[in-house]
């Protein structure tokens, strides 16, 4: 049953992605990306990743749609009709995709419990017995039912600290980009205003 839902959602995702590619009205594109986020959140629930689904709904469908719409209000909503021939990009994409599909034949089948990915550290996380590095025989025990929270904050705290720092760095970056005057580039391309001093509006 879950395979059927999984397949249906994947099909809808593919259709939505194609719509995103084809549409030239950027507001519609951003809205489709919101729908795409909701669909992928539903897919994550089917794939048992409830925390990821929660995050995707709040972030992908909520905040990033708002930010994208805010950007469109500043830069305009029409995409120019592209005139270049699509042959070369299409060729690159087809070759890359073909090679990736060829590569998947070496991957283990989806959803099998004996896949290599389930063998390494995940059982220790699920049993909540992670051996401490250094001291022999000592284990780190945490009794929190939500394993994802435990792994996120305790076992892999370094990763999360790094990610939090990246989020902070992005804020610093955006603030740095938006600071200062909005000075359009002097239009030196046209000979009319060659003195160039009246460029700032």
């Amino acid at each position: 049953m879950e395979s059927v839902v999984d397949l249906a959602l994947l099909g809808l995702l593919a259709v939505t992605a194609f719509g995103v590619l084809r549409l030239r009205n950027l507001v519609a594109v951003v809205m489709l990306m919101g729908i795409y986020s909701f669909l992928s959140a539903a897919l994550f629930v089917v794939l048992d990743a409830v925390d990821v689904a929660f995050t995707e709904v709040a972030v992908g469908a909520g905040v990033s749609t708002i930010l994208a719409l805010g950007t469109l209000a500043l830069v305009g909503t029409r995409q120019k009709r592209h005139t270049k021939s699509p042959t070369i990009p299409l060729l690159i994409v087809l070759v890359t995709g073909g090679m990736l599909v060829y590569g998947t034949y070496d991957l283990p089948r989806w959803g099998q419990p004996d896949n290599p990915v389930h063998g390494h550290v995940a059982p220790e996380y699920l049993e909540m017995h992670v051996p401490l590095a250094g001291e022999e025989g000592e284990v780190l025990e945490v009794h929190i039912p939500n394993i994802v929270t435990t792994v996120l904050a305790s076992y892999r705290g370094y990763d999360t600290l790094g990610e939090t720092t990246v989020v902070f760095a992005a804020m610093v970056g955006v603030l740095t980009l938006f600071v200062g005057s909005r000075r359009p580039r002097r239009t030196r391309g046209s000979p009319a205003d060659d003195d160039g001093e009246d460029g700032a509006s």
Partner: peptide, 22 residues
């Protein structure tokens, strides 16, 4: 199901929106 990919991707989504804003 395996919780490890969930943890990695949860943080990746939030970092993704931060970099997208950038």
């Amino acid at each position: 199901s395996n919780p490890l990919p969930h943890v990695l991707m949860l943080t990746a989504i939030v970092v993704g929106v931060a970099t997208m804003a950038m």
